[in-house]
């Protein structure tokens, strides 16, 4: 069956080539992780191939975001209604939304006004625009958090590392500029943001979890990972089903192929 051997060899070659192609692509991804220290793996359960989000961590993380980060960081692609997906009830979501004053208008007199938020509203932005955000933050622009985990090499591991990577005083021999802070994982190591999570118990968790700095960093990172990829769980669940289907389909197709080719060999 030389033909069979040939085709097998050909197929293997093809597979090897495809694999090599894909590996070649690791180049940009790996290179992007450059810029200093290796980022430790925080081992988030949602970073596993088939992992899902930890619902309790998501809700705690939202609390950290709301009470700490949201003072400066917008997440303008999120709506309050999205919080249903992290396990909050409709009443809770409505109450959370109603606690914010959302700019709306113009009214019949042509004036803008503020009204209590509704679940369909986008998260309220802390600043009216980027210029206002810079003005309030010594010229530094706090980035929007809607897709931050997708937008950083290293993803959630990087966010977690950054939040726990402050060192004060900085290592010997490093001069930190006025108004900057030393962070082991920030590219260039000098970050304008003061340590946002700075003391245990900064946030009072309702579920009794001890709010250590690391715990808060993990929780808020989990929340931000969900904010970046709210489709992640659906996507993986669908992926498993589709790939299983395709494997069966592949077996059947190959069997038919063998049958059809049987009289040629």
């Amino acid at each position: 069956m030389r033909l069979l051997n040939q085709t097998k060899a050909g197929f293997l070659k093809g597979a090897a080539l495809a694999a090599a192609l894909l590996l070649g692509l690791a180049a940009p991804a790996a290179q992007a992780a450059e810029g200093g220290v290796a980022i430790p793996d925080a081992r988030f359960q949602h970073d596993r191939m088939l992992g899902t989000f930890d619902r309790a961590a998501l809700q705690r993380g939202f609390q950290v975001y709301k009470e700490v980060c949201a003072a400066c960081h917008a997440a303008h692609l999120l709506s309050y209604r999205n919080l249903r997906e992290i396990g909050l009830s409709e009443a809770e979501v409505t109450a959370i939304a109603a606690a914010y004053q959302i700019p709306d208008g113009p009214n019949d007199n042509g004036e803008m006004f503020e009204r209590p938020g509704r679940p369909s509203d986008r998260f309220r932005r802390p600043f009216a625009n980027d210029a206002a955000a810079r003005a309030a933050n010594n010229g530094a622009l706090p980035p929007d958090f809607s897709v931050i985990v997708k937008a950083r090499p290293g993803g959630g591991n990087y966010i977690h590392a950054l939040l726990t990577g402050y060192e004060d005083p900085p290592p010997a021999g490093v001069t930190v500029m006025e108004g900057m802070h030393y962070n082991k994982y920030f590219p260039g190591h000098q970050i304008a943001m003061a340590p946002p999570l700075n003391s245990d118990g900064q946030v009072q968790y309702g579920d009794g979890t001890r709010a250590t700095v690391d715990q808060m960093a993990r929780d808020v990172t989990t929340f931000l990972a969900w904010a970046s990829e709210p489709e992640l769980e659906t996507r993986r669940a669908m992926g498993i089903r589709i790939i299983l289907f395709l494997i069966v389909m592949g077996g059947l197709t190959y069997a038919v192929k063998r049958k059809i080719w049987a009289d040629v060999h």
Binding site: F245, L246, M249, L252, T253, A255, V256, K259, I260
Partner: peptide, 15 residues
Amino acid sequence: RDFLKLVAGSFAAVG
């Protein structure tokens, strides 16, 4: 072969 083809064809149609 016909049975196999039928099954594979149905699978493809469902997909």
